[in-house]
């Protein structure tokens, strides 16, 4: 009887614990220029904004320092307000926490926003299929994520979700866009959060209930 009691106690102890998975979620920290332009009009100003993402892809506070490679062409204040001085080409640099990002732009007769959409070529990282393109764009005041007609993935998973993220190793800190509605063909999802097109660099597909990474695509440019 004593042995049986020991066995039962051992069974209960075995079942009692909830174990822990260690998620390898390291990524290089980075700075993103949130609102890039390709050219700035002479004698006009433009306020640049930047975001800092730490080494798990999470937005974090940072003190940015801005500078210009040629102040005769473009001057920029320490808080990112740029002014076109003369026609030519300059590179702005924004630095924080030991890392930096750069942006080359022209100073000429017009100010041009870099892009109104970004495209990701989707690819699987698992045994589940994932093909097609995802387009992140601004349209009619809305931010949309669109899959083109070549989009194809699996219906075999219990909950396939699409995210925007800067860390493809985890859905932690990712922006959940939606549960995938259809597993092939063109479709559009409206993003409820107010985000810039440059805030996230990846479109990520994950089986949310079981945390199965399915695939992703890097948004370009």
């Amino acid at each position: 009887m004593k042995n049986i009691s020991l066995l039962l106690v051992s069974i209960l102890l075995l079942q009692a614990c909830i174990g822990t998975d260690l998620v390898d979620d390291f990524v290089e920290a980075k700075i993103v220029i949130e609102n890039p332009i390709s050219s700035l009009k002479v004698d006009s100003s433009y306020q640049f904004k930047a975001l800092y993402f730490n080494n798990v892809g999470k937005p974090a506070e940072a003190s940015f320092q801005w500078s210009s490679s040629d102040e005769n062409i473009l001057q920029i204040t320490s808080n990112g307000l740029a002014t076109g001085m003369a026609e030519g080409e300059s590179t702005i640099l924004v630095a924080a926490n030991g890392i930096f990002a750069t942006l080359s732009l022209l100073v000429n007769d017009t100010t041009i926003i870099v892009q109104d959409e970004r495209v990701a070529v989707l690819a699987t990282v698992s045994s589940y299929p994932l093909t097609g393109n995802a387009i992140l764009k601004k349209q009619g005041g809305k931010t949309l994520l669109e899959f083109d007609e070549r989009f194809n993935t699996t219906s075999a998973l219990p909950g396939l979700y699409v995210y925007l993220t800067n860390n493809v190793n985890t859905i932690n800190n990712a922006l959940e866009v939606a549960k995938v509605k259809a597993f092939s063909g063109a479709q559009i999802y409206e993003i409820s959060e107010d985000i810039s097109l440059n805030e996230y660099d990846y479109v990520l597909f994950y089986c949310k209930p079981f945390l199965v990474p399915v695939g992703n695509g890097q948004l370009k440019p």
Partner: peptide, 21 residues
């Protein structure tokens, strides 16, 4: 008993998602 393990960041040590049972 059915259990889902806790998810913990190997980088920061933070709990990403609490386990469930």
């Amino acid at each position: 008993r059915s259990v889902a393990y806790t998810q913990k960041s190997a980088t920061t040590g933070e709990i990403i998602q609490q386990g469930d049972a």
